[in-house]
């Protein structure tokens, strides 16, 4: 059991999201940065399917009555265990009676705390991910608050910490390049509109959350209207409403939408969006289907590398 002393700014339970309910209007939800979640799970000795905490901009303060084994990845929230600094992108033992605290994000936006055994909230439609708008998943469908008790499965405790080699830790910079595959509705934009989208930098505005990121920059021109007969959206869809400003959809994005979508950010690059903050600059760079699939292959190879490193340490 783990007790929440201070929930931080916006902390929710997330796993890799729900599959199979978008036809019913239920978003996939799940971690905004699936890479950081997955690495945290693997370092903590979990399968990739376990649920962890996603903390946003300012992290939580937690107390542990019983020993646990944990890993933190993603934004650097300057974690401390009983006052001692803990390295980001590493796993560590939490002795009974410890306090684990996080501060504001010194780099990045979202940090993931995985605990061995996973956070055992009930699954709702096949996932433990919190979807705040419909109040489902996680802890009663809401963000954490002080006094909450997180149900944990008993840890097997490998008792050997592991850290990601520094060269494998992603650097979060204020200049971000997101690879996109053009479409599905790139034909509804003028050649200049597409050149603007690919040539200009777009600023992340304060209107950003798990649903989507509203960006600001040069106006993207449509051939005529911005509206289409509503069709399906997915995380990474880049909608351009009549304002000409792109909106990149996130994990909690609604399942359908009525604005033309100029392009789709490829899955492996969504982690860069998840770690961006208001004021950061985004550059869109087009890639082919082959390049996108290759990036996905590399993402999975990276996970296998970590799995292989962790396996010998298991009890």
């Amino acid at each position: 059991m783990c007790t929440v002393l201070d929930p931080g700014m916006l902390t929710t339970v997330q796993d890799l999201g729900r599959t199979g309910y978008r036809a019913y209007g239920v978003p996939s939800s799940g971690a905004m940065d699936r890479m950081a979640l997955t690495v945290a799970n693997l370092l903590a000795g979990n399968t990739t399917a376990e649920a962890a905490l996603e903390m946003t901009l300012r992290g939580a303060r937690l107390s542990f009555a019983r020993p646990a084994f944990a890993a933190i990845c993603g934004a650097d929230m300057q974690a401390r265990l009983n006052g001692e600094r803990i390295a980001n992108w590493s796993s560590f033992v939490i002795p009974a009676g410890s306090e684990l605290s996080f501060d504001h994000a010194a780099s990045g936006c979202r940090a993931y705390l995985a605990l061995q055994g996973g956070i055992q909230v009930p699954t709702v439609m096949g996932s433990r991910s919190t979807y705040l708008r419909a109040q489902i998943g996680g802890l009663d469908g809401r963000m954490l608050r002080a006094g909450d008790e997180l149900p944990l499965r008993e840890a097997m405790l490998p008792r050997q910490s592991l850290a990601l080699p520094p060269e494998m830790i992603p650097a979060y910079t204020p200049d971000i390049t997101l690879r996109v595959m053009m479409g599905p509705q790139d034909k509804l934009f003028t050649a200049e509109g597409i050149a603007t989208f690919l040539g200009q930098a777009y600023k992340v505005t304060h209107r950003n959350d798990r649903m989507g990121y509203v960006l600001e920059g040069a106006k993207i021109a449509h051939t005529s209207a911005a509206d289409i007969v509503s069709d399906a959206l997915c995380p990474g869809s880049v909608q351009v409403p009549g304002s000409g400003m792109p909106i990149v959809m996130g994990s909690d994005c609604q399942t359908t939408g009525g604005y033309a979508k100029i392009a789709t950010v490829i899955g492996p690059d969504l982690m860069c969006l998840a770690q961006s903050k208001a004021g950061d600059n985004i550059h869109f760079h087009t890639c082919t289907d082959d390049e996108a699939v290759q990036a996905l292959r590399e993402e999975h190879a990276f996970y296998r590398y970590i799995e292989d490193a962790v396996r010998p340490l298991r009890n």
Partner: peptide, 10 residues
Amino acid sequence: MLDCGEQALI
């Protein structure tokens, strides 16, 4: 049929 990222098509 339209592309919608590497994991979907319309």
